[in-house]
């Protein structure tokens, strides 16, 4: 196993990170170049050069108003509509997933009783859940938030359950012998011990959340980024359509970065303790 050098020169690490960043940028620019060259070599109505897409996006979404950070209101409104669905869905889903996961793992009887039901609902593809929830809740934001919430909660719940079940019994015995209360046992032992698994689940869950958001906005909405893409497609505003797709990709990247950042901060102990010699 790798033994992490605790005194790895922080300056050298800094350089390495800078190198990584440069590589990422280079790859991104390279991918853009490939697209550009392809679009110019094989001109097509539907695959315009990326430069044209970006120029069009710039015209639409960038203003001269520094007070709004040069961002046009239409862009913010579009994002706000999507986030109004995504954020509550994610939060409700994450909170209920964690609570239910802990409960089902700690109360064995409940866990055995409801695991198959949960597995079954998880196996229903999120895209098939959308029509189901459209019957129940119509096509409004409530439906979107519910589908996102459930699509987040189910996989997360399974991961949390797994994590809580695998908490080292010695740690639980320590908590018992020293008579810590149920609150400390939960927040001080069970949840931290299950945190690595929880984050793994959260990572998957956020990706699913975005997929469901886009699908639900493509299915029935009057605003939001997904709707923008669909509308542009219907109207053959090809440049707008591709710009919307890029924005969705950017949101995905952003979400992923937020989860990674939280993970790095909260799970520093885990990363380091597992990379130290065992």
């Amino acid at each position: 196993m790798i033994v992490r050098q605790p005194a790895e020169d922080s300056r050298r690490r800094g350089w390495r990170q800078l190198g990584d960043l440069a590589l990422r940028l280079a790859v991104l620019i390279g991918a853009g170049l490939v697209w550009e060259l392809y679009a110019r070599a094989f001109p097509s109505l539907f695959i315009p050069p990326i430069s044209a897409i970006l120029a069009n996006a710039w015209d639409q979404w960038v203003t001269g108003d520094w007070r709004a950070l040069f961002i046009a209101p239409v862009f913010l409104e579009m994002l706000a509509a999507s986030f109004r669905r995504l954020v509550p869905g994610l939060i409700y889903g994450a909170v209920s997933g964690i609570i239910l996961g802990v409960a089902l793992a700690r109360v064995r009887f409940l866990g055995e009783m409801f695991s198959p039901l949960i597995q079954f609902f998880r196996a229903i593809p999120s895209s098939a859940k959308i029509p189901m929830f459209m019957v129940l809740l119509g096509i409004g934001d409530t439906m979107k938030i519910w589908v996102i919430g459930i699509s987040v909660a189910l996989p997360l719940l399974m991961n949390v359950m797994d994590g809580v079940r695998n908490v080292d019994p010695t740690l639980l015995a320590v908590a018992k012998v020293y008579r810590v209360g149920p609150w400390t046992r939960l927040w001080g032992v069970i949840l931290p011990a299950a945190a690595p698994q929880t984050f793994a689940g959260l990572r998957i869950a956020t990706m699913i959340a975005l997929i469901v958001l886009v699908l639900s906005e493509l299915t029935g909405a009057a605003d939001g980024v997904g709707y923008y893409v669909l509308y542009a497609q219907r109207m053959f505003y090809v440049l707008d359509m591709w710009a919307g797709v890029l924005v969705l990709g950017f949101i995905g990247y952003l979400l992923n970065a937020v989860v990674s950042l939280a993970e790095v901060r909260i799970l520093r102990w885990h990363r380091q303790s597992t990379s130290t010699a065992r």
Binding site: L171, V189, A193, W269
Partner: peptide
């Protein structure tokens, strides 16, 4: 149940401390 005023040192030190 675990009595008041009783402490225990476990056999498996590697697993009785919270790594976080």
């Amino acid at each position: 149940g675990p009595p008041r005023g009783l402490a225990m040192v476990f056999q498996d030190y590697g697993r009785s401390l919270m790594p976080w």
